[in-house]
Design a protein around this nucleic acid. Structure first.
Lengths: 213, 213
DNA sequence: TAGTATACGGAAAGAAGATTCCGGTTGATC
DNA sequence: GATCAACCGGAATCTTCTTTCCGTATACTA
């Protein structure tokens, strides 16, 4: 229970403005990511800044509300895909959707980690992970997906794909995604590492890094 | 010729400070990425802020100097790998190094695109791409790497891996890299897309995205 | 339709950083 | 060791946000 239901309901104009703000935030954060400013948002929503801050305690909560909704949508897509006859096809379908989400929504791409501070977002994320785990499990059982991936790997890989949104001309992120998908097939898979690269090995590589003259 | 050699050489103290600033920038930007502030940098370098701005016109040029050096280092590693007997082994070696660079140097990960504004950086990047192309070509000729990747794909994929630096506990980025490497093998490769997802198809996915109530 | 709790707008305060400026040093040169 | 262009430090300035505050307006209730 985040809001008290015992209190009087919001006034009608407040309700309408809240909806406008959310709609504007959904668009604007998608376009511009975290760079979008609150005054800008207020303008797009057609309300004053003060009104934005009456509807949401701060920028993070507003962002969180939008992010949580995106995650819930994605979770729904995954759950639907888990019903598909061919689990691998279901998986690739849904992973294209997840990648598209990263590509088209800069804020989703930029702030998912930070947004996890909010319970609403964390819960929605939990739901997507559970759904991914089920979908992956079916694809693995069918022998089409490598056996050593886990649910947490998928959002991580998708975030990487999202980074390629603007990587040069051509089908950059689509190619990136295709490479990742091939890397997830059971066919020709080489075992994934089980433990982090030891501090020593990493430092050995990195200590070679030169400082400019 | 970026600087005029006809001018008198820098005074010794200026030269020393410039080196300190570069060393501090190399460390600090690696640790904190673009969040590192100029006053903080000046403090770590043990000089005043004014001194930093005497040595470099602005933050971007300083960052660029460090980034360009990192790229030159990477280019050297790739060129060396291209001499290896086993081109695939050479490739995986160097790609681990590139990933480690992204993982350990937040600035490298965050600002490579922006840094390309500077000619120095663009040139260094060109050298790494050329080297990658040669290395990839050998691995493809040997039949170990899929034939449809090109040099530009590799930095893109590495950037994605770098994003997984802090993705939960465990060997997150190492697993990510391993998936990508498997996706690059000739064995079991499915053709990469040649053209971007049509605007229509992408919009069809994205238009489904809901706005929070 | 009068009364009042809610909500509105937007000016102003607060915060954080990049960059500039300039009075006071110091290395190089003769 | 005197001169002075080149340097140094860091306070002050300029920007760009986020967030607060409060006088005014409006929706709901009786």
């Amino acid at each position: 229970m985040t809001t008290t239901n015992l209190a009087r309901p919001r006034r009608a104009d407040a309700e309408r403005n809240r909806a406008r703000i959310l709609a504007a935030a959904s668009e604007l954060f998608a376009e511009r990511g975290l760079d979008a400013s609150m005054p800008e948002l207020a303008e797009r929503a057609g309300v004053g800044i003060g009104t934005v801050y009456r509807a949401f305690p701060d920028k993070d909560h507003l962002l969180g509300a939008v992010m949580a909704e995106r995650l819930r949508w994605l979770a729904g897509e995954i759950e639907a895909a888990a019903q598909a006859d061919d689990p691998w096809a279901g998986f690739t379908d849904v992973i294209w959707k997840g990648a598209a989400l990263h590509v088209k929504d800069r804020a989703f791409h930029q702030c998912m980690r930070a947004a996890l501070e909010l319970p609403e977002v964390r819960e929605a994320r939990g739901r997507t992970l559970d759904a991914f785990q089920r979908l992956i499990g079916r694809a693995q059982a069918a022998g089409s997906m490598r056996g050593d991936v886990v649910a947490e790997d998928i959002p991580m890989l998708l975030a990487g794909v999202g980074l390629s949104r603007a990587a040069g001309p051509g089908a950059a992120w689509e190619r990136h995604l295709a490479v990742v998908i091939d890397g997830l097939r059971a066919e020709g898979a080489h075992p994934l590492p089980r433990r982090p690269l030891s501090r020593g090995r990493l430092d050995a590589i990195v200590s070679e890094l030169p400082c400019p003259r």
